[in-house]
Design a binder for these strands. Structure first.
Lengths: 225, 225
DNA sequence: ACCTGAACACCGTTCAAGT
DNA sequence: ACCTGAACACCGTTCAAGT
């Protein structure tokens, strides 16, 4: 028995696991972006050979899924435990938007991945689903609502990421006089601020209409922080 | 003079250009997906050596931008020429959603690219901007409206692409009983149809609220095909 | 059980050499 | 002006060999 335990004083050398790999990978992405995440670079950060990683992950794709779950775990759905569903849903949506916005590089990779092996992601959805159900939403309307809001949230995160000059027409402005004028009218305005303002409008619009359609009454006291 | 012209009967061998490269690339993506688009594969399709492509495009990235412009050019904004802005905007949004949905693999790559060297994209935006301006929209509200709708459209296209089982919790369903039940309640229902229905709701909600805010009256006869 | 080191089949891109 | 062919510096992944 005792022979199986590592001798005292000898440093542990087996340090690779999902958690440690995920956080090293996220650090690389945070510093140098998604394209910088290579198996070689990741192995270097972990003081290990690239092939060693394959003892813990079956592929780079799997590591990307770990990262996704890790990011989704940052979304704050705790408001469902403390306030009415409408307020909680808004705070969740904002948090979701902010998290996705901060990791917009990943959106393309993340959006189509299944949720099956992603414990933190599933936990997040559970909080939302439970909160909505407790708030009077019929179970059959929960997924459609989440789907629609996610649509909007992903899109909003995209726009947050968009460079200031996405709409610059460059040499083509002669061909697009009205559009060029419309773009010019935004010059100097904070696109991000506009975007966030529009997010609130869109959120209210979607939730109000969906709730009405599902026959769900608004909570008595709707805070709108 | 005559000496510069290619001799009759000799086949032209210089056939590479933006158009021909773009369409070959799109065909590869259509058949085998985005990952299958490599410079080698593209060159093969064009009966040419990979390095030959670099006489026409400065990088693979540039070719991806050509593809983006080509895809955006398929969005139908012609309704602005024939009907009121509200109906036209809806038809444009549906077309945009359908085009993005059909090319959802590209969304991640496309969303952050500038519009500067993209003539068909700019032409599409011009139709929308001109139509809105003619319909009474203040020029300063045009870009914000487009931004918000694009948010929603991209998100909706994402959801169209989502596999049926995105929300399957797998072995984790014990940890997420309510969410698992909510997902189960959708089983057998056509997610795509639900998604399209919700798209209309979201669209109306966003446009109505944004128009009201901008002080734009609805057109007298709003068709809702 | 886990890591190394060599190898494999690819990538995108460059560049001298040809016509 | 445009294409070829060889080369370069990478990729992700596999696998026998070690401990």
């Amino acid at each position: 028995m005792a022979g199986n335990r590592r001798p005292a004083g000898r440093p542990r050398t087996r340090i690779l696991n999902r958690e440690v790999i995920t956080s090293a990978a996220r650090r690389i992405i945070a510093i140098d972006g998604v394209p910088a995440l290579t198996m070689t670079r990741l192995a270097q950060r972990l003081s290990v050979t690239p092939s060693a990683l394959y003892n813990h992950a079956t592929s780079k794709q799997e590591i990307l899924r770990w990262i996704e779950d890790s990011v989704m775990g940052e979304i704050d759905a705790s408001a469902f435990e403390t306030t009415d569903w409408h307020t909680a849903l808004r705070e969740w949506a904002r948090s979701y938007r902010d998290v996705m916005s901060a990791h917009s590089e990943l959106i393309g990779a993340l959006a189509t991945v299944e949720v099956a092996e992603s414990p933190r992601t599933v936990a997040m959805y559970e909080k939302v689903a439970a909160g909505l159900a407790a708030g009077g939403w019929p179970i059959a309307s929960v997924v459609p609502l989440i789907l629609t809001l996610e649509s909007f949230i992903y899109g909003a995160a995209f726009n947050d990421h968009a460079p200031e000059n996405v709409y610059d027409t460059g040499e083509l402005s002669d061909l697009a006089p009205t559009f060029a004028r419309a773009v010019e009218a935004q010059r100097g305005r904070d696109l991000r601020a506009i975007n966030h303002e529009l997010f609130e409008i869109g959120f209210d619009a979607i939730v109000d209409q969906t709730a009405e359609r599902a026959g769900v009454p608004m909570p008595a006291t709707t805070a709108s922080a």
